[in-house]
């Protein structure tokens, strides 16, 4: 072939080589078609492990009960028996090391999430004892009168 054909052709060849080299450096070895095929599984496999390695914050009631036996025993017989501790006591994380002390939410707003009386037929909300927040106890905290661990009205 003639020189003037080769010259641009070389430019193209060099460009292709550079792009392929850059791709080889940049794209990790585990990137490609995985279990779910090309359409749904084209990805970097290592990312699945990255997601799995994220540390959980919420630990669950059993984790709390392991040390705080006395406190969890107080829930017995009350309607908050199965209520998740961490919903009010905040996520345990690596407690007792990190954080050493949990921030407890004793606010009125927290109780009102469930205990504002709403008319919701065909919903579990209707079966929960509720109040009208504008008429019941001003803006005072519920926990001043009610025991959040055993909120039964008879034992107030």
């Amino acid at each position: 072939m003639k020189k003037h054909v080769w010259r641009p052709l070389w430019v193209v060849v060099v460009l292709v080589v550079i792009i392929l080299l850059a791709r080889w450096v940049y794209v990790p070895a585990d990137f490609g078609v995985q279990d779910r095929g090309y359409t749904f599984g084209y990805h970097r496999l290592g990312n699945e492990k990255e997601w799995q390695a994220q540390t959980p914050r919420y630990q669950g009631n059993n984790y709390c009960a392991d040390c705080h036996e006395e406190q969890t025993a107080r829930l017995a017989g009350g309607s908050h028996l199965d209520f998740p501790c961490e919903n009010c006591h905040s996520a345990a994380g690596e407690h007792p090391t990190k954080p050493e002390k949990l921030a407890i939410d004793r606010s009125r707003a927290l109780c009102l999430r469930c205990h504002v009386k709403l008319f919701m037929p065909s919903s579990g909300r209707n079966t929960i004892p509720g109040i009208d927040p504008e008429r019941h106890n001003g803006t005072g905290d519920c926990v001043d009168c009610h025991n959040p661990h055993k909120p039964n009205l008879e034992e107030m």
Partner: peptide, 23 residues
């Protein structure tokens, strides 16, 4: 997942759709 142009979002073998934040 189908519309992702770079292969950053995908489905795992157990059916969960994830996003590769680095990608």
């Amino acid at each position: 997942v189908q519309v992702c142009p770079v292969g950053a979002t995908y489905q795992t073998a157990d059916g969960v759709v994830l996003v590769d934040r680095k990608w």
